[in-house]
Amino acid sequence: MIIKGKYPIDASAQNVWNHLMDPEVLKRITPGISDLQPLDKDKYLAISKIKIGPVSGSFEGELELKDIKDETHATIVINQKSKIGNVSAEIKMQLNKLENTTEIEYKGEAKLTGKLAMMGQRIIGGVVSSLSKQFFKTLNNEINNTIR
């Protein structure tokens, strides 16, 4: 499944980057996430609970950032396991500096197995898109210190 999109944040690229690289911030703003423990440099153990249509599950697994470049580019590698199936994804992210804002652009592919694939695939595109929007909206709020 292809995952891609763009989202504008009202802040400088540097500011956005700093927030994105802070595990404490990520833990606060990522939907469904309950824990993010550092395992290594740029490598975390993530624990989350997500409901996708008819299936819901507790996920646990690694989340790694690699190919970090210029404080604008990174690749997020996700390997999450759960009783309802596994998710593996590799998503390239870049920050595009615009006039007064920064655009986060991301593109990648996710693979699903198990019940997630059997029952979730039909609606997962919509779920991913709505979770992403929620994430970026919260990030925007976090940076601009508006509604918490």
Binding site: P54, K111, L112, T113, K115, A117, M118, M119, Q121, R122
Partner: peptide, 14 residues
């Protein structure tokens, strides 16, 4: 089945 061989019609909703 999807391109990875996962069945994507595995329930009466699908």
């Amino acid at each position: 089945y999807d391109e990875n061989g996962q069945m994507i019609t595995g329930s009466f909703m699908d």
